[in-house]
Design a protein around this nucleic acid. Sequence first.
RNA 1: GGAGGGGUGGGCGAGCGGACGAAACCACCGGUCUUGAAAACCGGCGAGCCGUAGGGCUCCGCGGGUUCGAAUCCCGCCCCCUCCGCCA
Length: 419
Amino acid sequence: MLDIHRLREDPIGIEKRLQSRDPSIDLTEILELDEKRLSLIQQVEERKAERNRGSQEVGRLKKDGKDTTKLIASLSSLAEEIAHLDDELKQVSARIDHLLALLPNVPHPSVPVGAKEEKVVLRSYKESPLFDFPIKHHLEIGEEKGILDFGRAATIAGARFPMYVGMGARLEMALIQFMFFYHVKNGYIPVIPPFLANSESFFVASQLPKFADDVYYCEKDDLYLNPTAESILVNLHRGEILSLEDLPLNYVAYTPCFRREAGTYGEDERGLIRVHQFNKVEMFKFTAQETSYSELDQIVADAEGVLQALGIHYRVTLLSTQDMAQQSSKTIDLEVYLPGQGRYYEVSSCSNCEDFQARRGNTRYRPAAFQKPLYVHTLNGSGLATSRLLAAILENNQMKDGRVRIPEVLKETVGAEFI
RNA sequence: GGAGGGGUGGGCGAGCGGACGAAACCACCGGUCUUGAAAACCGGCGAGCCGUAGGGCUCCGCGGGUUCGAAUCCCGCCCCCUCCGCCA
């Protein structure tokens, strides 16, 4: 949620920056309503002050045993007037809130302007491996070895639900465990949160109202299934005033993630690339305002650390304005290379949402004793998303003899060197 | 799911139709005293919104209602605690 004051102060500048994300954005209505709202506030508050004075007078008169019927009658009609104005004010405010809730965050000046293709590759790690034999798609490897069973998963749940079996399940679990403890060792507070959340939580996360169709919803209990732990963790300090000494607060959570992924998929998203359910270890930071961009670098570095430990070639990209999630000001992705299809896939997305979510969740901190509380900045970063990571391991580590090499750091947990 | 009790400022907790944005205590900040600190004493200390300002409005879990006036009364919902039921 953007600050209406910010729109008021620089309507043209903010509108221009928002249009770099979505050219159809138009702030005219919201600004008009804002003016109307301010004038209504003044009118209604003036009358309320009058009512309060009158009501106190009633108390005094009654105490002195004097007649109050006349005064009460006039206050009665004043109360009616107030009720009307309050109604109007409520309607105008609700409309403003609705329009405001649909607006994306203001992009950071360093974010490249434009469509998806405008993203910038910042750096990369290792080279993509060279193979002197015909390479296989991870789905082929998975089915051959009986470690991925999409067929039976479809019987149980439907298309695009993965099922890991045997070595597949062992490798997936080992990855989750390795990543979780990797971040714990780096000082992140480990959390296993609820996997379902209410609508208020999803509003704070900015999943609602705009992206309701992307998530699974249990109507009977009015609960949503977690699409990313970001949606859950951002609510961890809702309504709280944190103390500066506690910042940054760093959390790491493991959750399965559920996404409806309604719509069509291309051939290049077969297998584990785009599924309704996947596992993810997520980092989340609540920071002071001045440090959020250095913390963004840190969260990216922590995510990269996992890929480096696994020894997988990847690249780091800076997303363009039109490719970022609504709540983000700046997003940096990590992409692994899948030789089976000769292209890169996102395994981590690290964002600084500045105060966009904190404003919705009313999460603040006091910069110093007796100073006004400020909104925290919230950052999220996958560290990392594993169905795609498992696919990356299967494809990158395949060998001429058909076996797949287990990364050094996972050998012990998996209990094998090769699949 | 059923019965009862409860949700008040950073914490604890009083208030249960007007004098209450809210006592007391703790925490915190400033001062006096002290070589310094502690103790003691004095003072300060919630948040949001509107207004150039003086000032005003709103907030006692959330949402409605009654009333000239609601933390206080009524209705609905949420959460916590105790007991019962069910259950991995």
